[in-house]
């Protein structure tokens, strides 16, 4: 597999088996070259939406600031409008009242669009899983999620690592086939 991000080797990444499931099936020489070029462009210019609900948003800001500098990954600018954004980093708890808003934001983003679930609350409800009445247990009940980053909150490096995972995933896309609509099979709830 030739998917390399920065100078990280393939074996350095986790969860390679799931990535292999997403791998594209064949294609002629011409098409794969075009794919490579398009994916290279897409994966190196994913612009995030300014969307932070709680604590993880602060770590997301810290990632964007001087010490960790998001922009080294081509995640250049935070867009305030969903129309201009490619990736939505769901940083924080999503509650019942917020879920329709998140869904609408996701729908307003133009394709191709990606979702990163950052932090325990967005991944599974985290500390607010039990005994509470107003929390969505995992943002994948609302929008399909590409990359899950656990942690409460994850370190900025962990977020950068998650972004690299997303870049790897983007590099496997092909224009020959429609990008898999995420509702088939991948959007599932986990039995606990």
């Amino acid at each position: 597999m030739g998917v390399r991000i920065k100078n990280m080797k393939y074996a350095d990444f986790q969860d390679n088996e799931t990535l292999e499931l997403f791998e594209k099936t064949g294609g002629n020489v011409m098409l794969t070259t075009i794919d490579d070029v398009i994916d290279w462009g897409r994966s190196n210019s994913i612009w995030p939406l300014t969307f932070a609900t709680s604590c993880c948003g602060i770590e997301m800001m810290a990632t964007g600031a001087s010490r960790h500098d998001f922009a080294r990954f081509g995640i250049e600018v935070y867009r305030a409008s969903p129309r201009q954004a490619d990736v939505i980093v769901v940083a924080g708890t999503i509650v019942n009242k917020m879920a329709p808003v998140l869904k609408r934001l996701y729908d307003q983003m133009s394709d191709p669009k990606y979702v990163i679930a950052m932090g325990a609350c967005a991944v599974s409800g985290g500390p607010f899983f039990y005994n509470t009445y107003h929390v969505i247990r995992g943002v994948d009940h609302v929008v399909p999620v590409d990359v899950y980053i656990p942690g409460c909150p994850p370190r900025p490096e962990a977020l950068l690592y998650g972004v690299m995972q997303l870049q790897r995933k983007i590099k496997l896309e092909t224009i020959a086939k429609e990008r898999k609509t995420k509702d088939d099979g991948r959007r599932r709830t986990i039995k606990l």
Binding site: T53, G92, T93, V95, V101, P127, Y130, N131, T132, H134
Partner: peptide, 21 residues
């Protein structure tokens, strides 16, 4: 209320050490 998570309700089921978190 867009991030109302019901912490006060959760506290009624938690011990004091757990409330801290």
């Amino acid at each position: 209320g867009y991030i109302h998570r019901g912490i006060e309700k959760m506290c009624e089921k938690d011990t004091y050490q757990q409330i801290i978190h």
